[in-house]
């Protein structure tokens, strides 16, 4: 609708409405009928809406709050349980690790001790063997020296008797030769 096609006066009159029948209302005066209607409408509305809408909504909200609280508590409990279980597992694992470490240490110690024992034993045996060998060698050497010495004496006597053309009295001359040999430098005998 284009405004220029409408007589503004008609529009204004229409907007103002017709001053029809019925008592006129005043802007600043309380009209008892309207007031009573307000009380009736509001009162009824409050009674119906209270029962029909507000209470059920709040009941549901209460229920929801309860559910949420319950769920949160349950979650907390579950979390605590899980943490407890984890702590238990960790303690168990620690214990086992400790045990394994202990076991390992013990085994290592034992192995070391056994090794040392074996080493000690073999060293001892080796020493013993060496000692025995040395003693044997010494004995053999001494015996050889003794033999050489006696043979040398005999040889010397034989040689001398051949040279002298007579048989030396074996007993007396043996003593002389023995003396001689004893005076040799680089004495083969250990005793002086």
């Amino acid at each position: 609708m284009v405004l220029t096609h409408v007589d503004p006066q008609v529009l204004l009159t229409a907007l103002a409405g017709s001053s029809g029948e019925g008592e006129a209302f005043s802007l600043m005066q309380v009209h008892p009928g309207t007031l009573i209607w307000t009380l009736i409408i509001f009162g009824l509305l409050m009674a119906i809406m209270g029962k029909l809408v507000w209470k059920p909504i709040l009941k549901m909200v209460h229920e929801r709050e309860g559910k949420i609280r319950e769920a949160l508590e349950k979650a907390d409990q579950a979390k605590a349980g899980a943490e407890e279980a984890i702590a238990g597992q960790r303690a168990l694992a620690d214990k086992q690790r400790q045990e394994a470490a202990n076991f390992l240490t013990k085994a290592k110690d034992e192995a070391q001790r056994a090794g040392e024992e074996i080493m000690e034993k073999s060293r001892r045996e080796a020493t013993e063997l060496t000692e025995r060998a040395r003693r044997q060698i010494e004995e053999e050497k001494n015996r050889a020296i003794e033999e050489i010495r006696s043979q040398a004496v005999d040889l010397a006597i034989t040689a001398a008797s051949h040279l002298l053309g007579k048989t030396l009295d074996s007993e007396s001359h043996r003593a002389i030769v023995q003396d001689y040999i004893d005076q040799l430098p680089g004495n083969l005998n250990s005793h002086p």
Binding site: G22, E23, F25, H31, P32, G33, T34, I36, W37, T38, I41, L44, L45, I48, M49, L52, V53, P56, I57
Partner: peptide, 29 residues
């Protein structure tokens, strides 16, 4: 007291408002 409880424009509006709220209430319920 002269009490006129005939339905005037604003009373009608209150009825409509109450009706809208009741419809809203039924939908929500």
């Amino acid at each position: 007291l002269d009490i006129n409880m005939s339905v005037s424009r604003h009373v009608l509006m209150m009825f409509i408002a109450a009706g809208l709220l009741l419809i809203m209430g039924i939908l929500v319920r």
